[in-house]
Nucleic acid binder design. Structure first.
Lengths: 167, 167
DNA sequence: TTAAACTTTCAAAAATAAATGAAACTTTAT
DNA sequence: ATAAAGTTTCATTTATTTTTGAAAGTTTAA
């Protein structure tokens, strides 16, 4: 396979994977493109490579910067802006985890807490509801904490040891 | 909050969460409904509670069964079928992880392997591409393995210990 | 201060994903 | 064997999400 073909395949695949996980295709594609670029890329070039409109490029770059996984860069003597992606994968995973936790999991936990603490009457149905949502709350909380700690966990010696054992 | 209201809130929230993670809303809602039901539910009742059509209910129940997280149940003396959800959360997480790994991560890994093993010419651009995609391959593989082992990890003593330390 | 170069916004259009519902199919009791 | 009870399928419709593009907004150099 040739470089250009490989690069395109990678960008397409990353885009498809993104949309399967609730991240829009273009956003994932831009990120992919920046990940494998050895230097900062202008919006013009992004538009050109991905065949997307200026507005689309602008909005998704903004979103990526909001997630903290793409940075703006200024080049001396150049008026226009260039973009680079976070390339350290642990850092990337950590930021994505933090962001999704904040945006989705934390609000869901709040609701779970609410619904799991209703006054359960004596019906088996209501008892089961409270029991199950309580378990779910605990589970999601635990999973959220794990996600949160994943990176530092990945980096510490005990984590490495456990990872080895798990393989 | 009253039981009916709480149940509805839970089903809606779970549905919204699902669609943010690439699972369709109805599928997640049906699952939510079954999770908090203390007894098996008929298709008729699901349609009724979620206000969805027969076809929609049927297709999403089928999908949930394909994922292995919803089961058909037959009641003596009843012709129609009833459905229950996997209620053990570790088991649920494990099945979802397995399924998403099989459907999405494994194919993505295959592509990553392909594109990361192209013959990199001497340009810095191509070298960076190969380097970055290789790192990504390793990272995704590691993450996939972790997901795979999460359940048994959660259950074993060392896992529990590490979890405690991580908190 | 102004005009060129560039970026952002957002209403409308296009693309995509999900839901409907009626017909086809299957199962089971008689 | 058959008809009643129930389930599945899938072409069409509907809803949702994403993209476009032109206008508005910014910034900077002269």
């Amino acid at each position: 396979m040739e470089f250009k073909e490989a690069k395109n395949k990678f960008v397409q695949t990353w885009g498809a994977l993104g949309s399967q996980w609730g991240i829009n295709k273009t956003m994932a594609q831009i990120h992919a493109l920046l990940m494998v670029s050895n230097e900062a890329v202008s919006m013009e070039d992004i538009m050109d490579e991905l065949q997307i409109s200026r507005g689309n490029a602008s909005m998704n770059l903004r979103a990526l910067m909001d997630w903290g996984i793409v940075y703006k860069e200024y080049k001396a003597g150049e008026r226009r802006e260039f973009f680079t992606a976070e390339k350290d994968l642990d850092e990337l995973a950590s930021k994505i985890a933090r962001e999704r936790s904040k945006r989705e999991i934390k609000p869901a936990l709040k609701i779970l807490k609410e619904v799991s603490t209703i006054e359960a009457k004596d019906s088996a149905e209501e008892k089961h509801f409270v029991d199950q949502t309580t378990k779910l709350y605990d589970f999601v909380l635990k999973a959220d904490n794990m996600l949160d700690k994943m990176t530092e966990f990945n980096e510490n010696w005990l984590g490495r040891l456990v990872l080895k054992i798990m393989k």
